[in-house]
Amino acid sequence: MAALRNLSMVIGAAVAALGSVLFIAWNRYMPGRRRSRRAGYQLDYRPLCSQPNYLDRQILVLGLDGAGKSSIIHALSTNTTRSSSAPTHGFNTAQILSQGLKIELLEVGGSQNLRTYWNQYLKNAHIMVFVVDSTDDKRLQLARRELHRLLEEASHLPLMVLANKQVNIGWFFALL
Rank of each mutant, 00 (worst) to 15 (best):
R35L: 15
G110S: 08
I169C: 14
M160T: 13
L64Y: 01
R33G: 05
R35I: 13
I169V: 15
G110N: 04
I72E: 05
M128C: 13
N168M: 04
K102D: 06
I11A: 04
L159A: 03
F172T: 09
L7C: 05
N124M: 11
G68D: 01
V167G: 11
M160P: 02
S85H: 12
L76R: 08
F172N: 05
S36E: 06
L18N: 15
I127T: 08
G109L: 02
S50D: 12
A75Y: 05
Q58W: 00
L105C: 10
I72C: 09
A3K: 11
L105K: 06
K165P: 01
F91Q: 03
L162H: 00
S85E: 11
R57P: 06
G12D: 12
G32Y: 08
Y54T: 12
T88H: 06
E104R: 15
Q120M: 13
Y54L: 14
N79H: 15
W26I: 08
L55W: 07
R33M: 14
H148F: 11
N124K: 15
D56V: 07
I11W: 00
Q51G: 00
A94T: 10
L175H: 06
D136L: 00
S155N: 10
M9Q: 11
L142M: 03
S50N: 13
N79R: 14
A163V: 04
M160F: 13
G12N: 10
R28Y: 09
Q120I: 13
E146D: 13
L97C: 13
N27E: 09
R38K: 12
L162Q: 03
R149C: 12
M30L: 12
T93P: 00
Q42T: 11
F130R: 00
M160N: 04
G19R: 04
Y41D: 08
M9W: 08
L4S: 11
A75F: 00
H74G: 06
A143N: 01
N168I: 09
R82W: 02
P52L: 02
L122K: 05
P47C: 07
V21T: 14
F23R: 07
H126W: 03
S71H: 03
G109H: 05
L22D: 08
Y45K: 05
I127N: 09
V129P: 07
P52Q: 00
